[in-house]
């Protein structure tokens, strides 16, 4: 599998994760449990597509070869996507969706905080802008996790099930690749070594308020999104998202 340089790979990880998470949010259109949530979910989605475009633009410039953000988003196969396994998981019910969102926000928040201090100015600028948005996303998703965990017997049970379905993919939030470590140590992207503990602390705190139990640390298996080894779901997600670009390769939209 083709790999780019360390920074480009990292940019793809940030961009692809935001994009895939946004794509899942788009699936909620017209189906949210309250009209107010239609707006809220779409707001988060809009922020994330915007972030994805910024990361992928930068990645495309580094890759060259006539690439742009659209060609990266719409013309790569799943084997070349670097998004976190968590965000490609199906939406399930609102408990699964909100828990996924929370896990992702709780990772993005400390990550972007550190990236905003990056030596690489472009990384720092994108992170600074994104961080404002993600601060609000995290506030909303952690409130929903608390509401649903603590709300009714039914909502609590649904959250327990959601944790059971999703926790297995959480190992990616707490591990750093050697490439990321070296980027971090060189301060190209800021010191991200503390992201794992901050993610865990946030989860512990919100779960406690939500009366939910934090499971033992998830053990990795051979699925590794950094190497493009994803769950079965990503292929279908991309087939849908990329359909027009694939069916009409010479078209301009």
């Amino acid at each position: 599998m083709q790999k780019y340089d360390e920074l480009t790979e990292f940019l793809l990880r940030m961009g692809d994760s935001a994009l895939v998470q946004a794509q899942r949010l788009c699936e909620w259109t017209g189906k949210a449990p309250a009209l107010e949530e239609e707006l809220a979910l779409m707001n988060v989605g809009l922020d994330l597509v915007g972030q994805a475009r910024n990361w992928l633009d930068y990645a495309a410039e580094r890759i060259g070869d006539g690439h742009d953000a659209d060609s990266l988003a719409y013309r790569r196969d799943e084997r070349h996507f670097r998004n976190l396994l968590m965000v490609e998981q199906p939406n399930g019910d609102f408990a699964v969706t909100m828990l996924k969102q929370f896990f992702f926000d709780a990772w993005q928040y400390p990550m972007l905080t550190q990236l905003s201090k990056a030596k690489d100015e472009r990384v720092a600028a994108i992170a600074t802008k994104s961080l404002k948005e993600v601060t609000y996303h995290l506030r909303r998703s952690s409130e929903w996790v608390e509401r649903l965990g603590d709300g009714t017997e039914e909502s609590h049970q649904r959250m327990v099930k959601a944790i059971d379905a999703l926790w297995r993919f959480s190992y990616e939030f707490v591990e750093l690749s050697t490439q990321e470590q070296s980027l971090s140590e060189a301060h190209t992207i800021g010191d991200i070594s503390s992201v794992a503990t901050k993610w865990q602390a946030m989860v512990n705190d919100v779960f406690a308020r939500a009366t939910l139990t934090v499971p033992d640390a998830a053990q990795p298996f051979y699925l590794a999104s950094r190497d493009g080894v994803h769950s079965e779901h990503l292929g279908f997600l991309l087939a849908e998202m990329q359909y027009l670009q694939r069916a009409h390769p010479n078209a301009s939209w």
């Binding site: 309250a34 107010e36 707006l39 707001n43 409130e143």
Partner: peptide, 20 residues
């Protein structure tokens, strides 16, 4: 106006609806 379960949520829903 907005619908919400409490004032905090009302502020958030108002933000989503009236300050896009």
């Amino acid at each position: 106006s907005v619908h919400a379960v409490d004032a905090e949520m009302a502020i958030e829903n108002a933000r989503e609806l009236y300050t896009r």
